[in-house]
Amino acid sequence: VYFEQATFDLEGHLEPSLFEESLNLLVSRHAILRTNFYSGWHGQPLQIVYRHKSPIFHYQDVRGREHAVAEFVVQDKARGFDLSKDALMRVSVFRTGESSYRFVWSFHHIVMDGWCLSLMTDEVFGAYAALLENKQPELAPVKPYSDYIEWLEHQDAQEATRYWSDYLAGFEQRTLLPGENTHVSVAERDDDTNRSGQSSNSGYVLEKLPFMLGKERSAALNQMAKQQHVTINTLLQSVWGVILQQYNNNQDVVFGGVVSGRPADIPGVENMIGLFINTIPVRIQSERNATFAEVLQRTQEQALTSSVYDTFPLYDIQARTEQKQDLIHHIMVFENYPIGQQMKQMGGSGETKA
């Protein structure tokens, strides 16, 4: 379930051996990419960082049989990762035409989040461009993920516990989606069975429903956010909260929100490669006669205050509530990754274009 796979196309000329060399350089610079995880060590999970571990790189010319790429994507995901011994990132490149290539970049979520993909592609293709010109890549010093781990160990868990206990004080119900079975959560429906091993019979079907807002509506949302001095994420969370209030007939609702988890007080944290994201409760609470602007302001204020404690583990937050694991039945994720723009900019002046 935590298998991540990104695909993109490149046009131009690619030297596979030089790209593999730049990929090896990436892994040698970032310890998190040389990591494995073991269970059963004196009853504790253990994270091991190797001094040397090569990434898995695969190159294949599939011109005239492009269906092979689609087959590989399915097989690659089915293969998954063995956390105890596999390289937890692998890159496959398929030549699909005279000057076109399809990249399949797979990794396990335990070693990094989506933000890291743009950092990695930027570094790898930057090194590749230098190698093409027979130059030594000039790369910025690495900000080690261990700095973040050390920072985490110095956080005041008692203070965070008090904050989240106060944040959720008085919340007594469970927030459900329309028609949701009170015994089975949305998160459980990602699989065929729930935690107890029973099949879900709520009638939900797992499927993707793409929806484009369009330029006009997107512009209106951006304008509203600017007028109210809130972020787009706050705006969408507030909208979703108001919808949930209506369906639950309750002015007090809670759902999960995914945060970047990159503390601003760690120097260079925005350039670290590793897993930072966390899920925290988002509580939308308002009086029945409250205006939407008031809901927006309260949500924004809560988000700013919560940011100090948004690295606190969700299981610890849930354990201190009446609802326990039923506190959050679904999550809302707002993603804003720069990888698309970066790839286009990167290809703008070189031989290879994304």
Rank of each mutant, 00 (worst) to 15 (best):
R65D: 11
A70Q: 12
L23H: 05
L26Y: 00
A68I: 08
D9S: 10
V49W: 03
L46K: 13
A70D: 15
P55E: 03
E71V: 12
R63I: 09
H58L: 11
R51G: 13
H42D: 13
V73A: 08
S17P: 00
K77D: 09
G64K: 06
G64P: 09
V74N: 07
P16E: 04
D61V: 01
V73Y: 00
R34V: 00
L23S: 05
W41L: 12
R51A: 10
Y50E: 05
F81V: 01
P45Q: 13
R95S: 13
V74D: 12
H42N: 13
E21P: 00
E71W: 05
K77G: 09
N36P: 06
Q60S: 12
L25N: 08
Y59Q: 06
D9H: 08
R63P: 01
I48C: 11
S92L: 09
F57K: 03
S28N: 08
K85C: 14
E66R: 10
A31T: 05
E20D: 13
A70L: 08
H30V: 01
I32K: 00
I32A: 05
E11D: 12
A68F: 09
E15K: 09
N24R: 15
R51P: 08
V74L: 14
L46I: 06
E71Y: 06
V73D: 06
F57S: 08
M89P: 01
I56D: 14
D86P: 07
A31Y: 00
N36E: 13
N24G: 04
L18K: 14
V91E: 00
V69P: 08
A70C: 02
A70F: 06
L83C: 03
N36Y: 05
R90Q: 11
Q60V: 02
A78W: 03
L88W: 02
S17F: 05
S17W: 04
I56T: 14
Q60N: 04
K53W: 00
E15L: 07
A31D: 12
E11R: 15
M89D: 01
I32Y: 01
Y50T: 02
E71K: 12
Q44W: 07
H30F: 06
V62A: 05
E20H: 14
N24M: 07
F19W: 05
H13I: 11
I56E: 15
R63N: 04
Q60G: 00
R51F: 00
E21T: 15
P55R: 03
D61F: 04
V91G: 00
M89W: 12
Q44E: 09
D86S: 07
Y59W: 15
H52A: 11
V91Y: 06
V69C: 10
V27L: 02
F72M: 00
R79A: 14
R95A: 12
P55M: 10
N24H: 14
W41C: 11
G80A: 10
S92A: 15
V27S: 00
F94T: 04
S84I: 02
F37G: 07
A78D: 14
V73N: 02
R34W: 00
E15T: 09
I48H: 13
R79K: 15
G80L: 05
I32S: 07
H13S: 14
Q44A: 10
E11Y: 13
N36V: 15
S39Q: 14
L18V: 04
D82C: 10
